[in-house]
């Protein structure tokens, strides 16, 4: 039955054509921007937002983010083919550092020519039990330092746009300073209450708590792919009880249900904190998210 081979060939060609046309359709929709002189890639959301504010409007420079804006924290991120392609074209790769980019060894083992620079130079990382907590951006002071670092790094690499970077950065820092004033008000409020203690359902909140002077009674590191045991939940609850914690800080996505459980059992208030690792690619998204975080804490203090 020779006929069968023809039918099969037609089928395969047909499937290949469908795949091809869908792919091209997809590609034209996402047409890559024209080749620029300088391509800067950031590793994930907070670094991207900081860099976006510094580099907005720079001529001949493309700024791209490696992971999608909805990826979240990138401990366990796996590079996709598109990421590898992007990195091949990159001249500068801005990373957070502190080991949070777990995939970095894959990158450095590959034959990439770009410069890898950590934007957290000069920032002190919180350490516990030999583990570095690298979520520094959750402290506004650290984030501001990151912005300054990016400004310096980029001015060094791209001298033509140095003046623009300087201008952008100082504008952004001004808004960050405003945010800091709000934070300081909240901090004074907390102090006047004789301090507040809280249980944290995410490692990154330690920076947030630290900056507000909130005492931490327990940290459970919940993130995207975490499985928890009953024992840990019990530990959280007893820590909340023993430490007289008045709130439990949780991310909207991961841990919200656990926070409700803890709250139901112990009566502490649930405070939703945005870890600033996902959102829209908007220049003011960090400030908005952080302002909301401060407000959420303030509401509970009343």
């Amino acid at each position: 039955m020779k006929n069968k081979y023809t039918i099969i060939s037609i089928m395969l060609i047909f499937i290949a054509l469908v795949a091809y046309s869908l792919t091209t359709a997809y590609m034209t929709k996402n047409k890559a921007t024209e080749k620029d002189n300088l391509t800067v890639v950031t590793s994930f959301y907070p670094v991207y937002i900081a860099a976006l504010n510094v580099m907005d409007g720079a001529e001949g420079v493309t700024l791209e983010n490696l992971s999608e804006p909805q990826t979240g924290c990138i401990h366990d991120y796996q590079l996709t083919p598109a990421d590898m392609k992007l990195l091949e074209t990159a001249d500068v790769f801005l990373i957070n550092g502190g080991g949070i980019e777990g995939f970095l060894s894959d990158v450095t083992e590959g034959a990439y020519s770009m410069e890898v620079v950590a934007v957290t130079d000069g920032i002190e990382f919180l350490e516990e039990e030999d583990e570095t907590n690298a979520h520094v951006w959750m402290d506004i002071d650290n984030y501001l330092k990151e912005v300054e670092n990016i400004r310096d790094i980029m001015s060094d690499i791209d001298k033509d746009n140095a003046a623009l970077y300087e201008k952008n950065a100082s504008e952004y820092i001004e808004s960050l300073e405003e945010l800091k004033t709000e934070r300081d008000e909240l901090k004074t409020q907390i102090e006047s209450k004789g301090g507040v203690s809280a249980a944290l359902l995410q490692e990154s909140f330690e920076y947030f708590a630290d900056m507000l002077g909130i005492e931490v009674v327990y940290t459970m590191d919940l993130d995207e792919e975490r499985q928890i045991s009953a024992g840990e939940v019990a530990d959280t609850m007893s820590a909340v009880n023993d430490g007289n914690a008045s709130m439990v800080l949780t991310d909207e996505l991961y841990g919200a249900e656990l926070a409700e459980t803890v709250s139901g059992e112990t009566g502490v208030a649930v405070c939703t904190i945005n870890p600033c690792v996902r959102g829209e690619y908007e220049k003011n998204s960090y400030i908005e998210a952080m302002r909301q975080n401060l407000e959420n804490v303030a509401t509970l203090l009343k």
Binding site: D76, Q78, E225
Partner: peptide, 20 residues
């Protein structure tokens, strides 16, 4: 593998990664 909440280290095994 999930003892101490470390399962995420191995989660790449679930989906695989031929690129590496």
């Amino acid at each position: 593998l999930s003892k101490g909440g470390n399962f995420s280290k191995y989660s790449s095994l679930l989906v695989g990664d031929i690129l590496s």
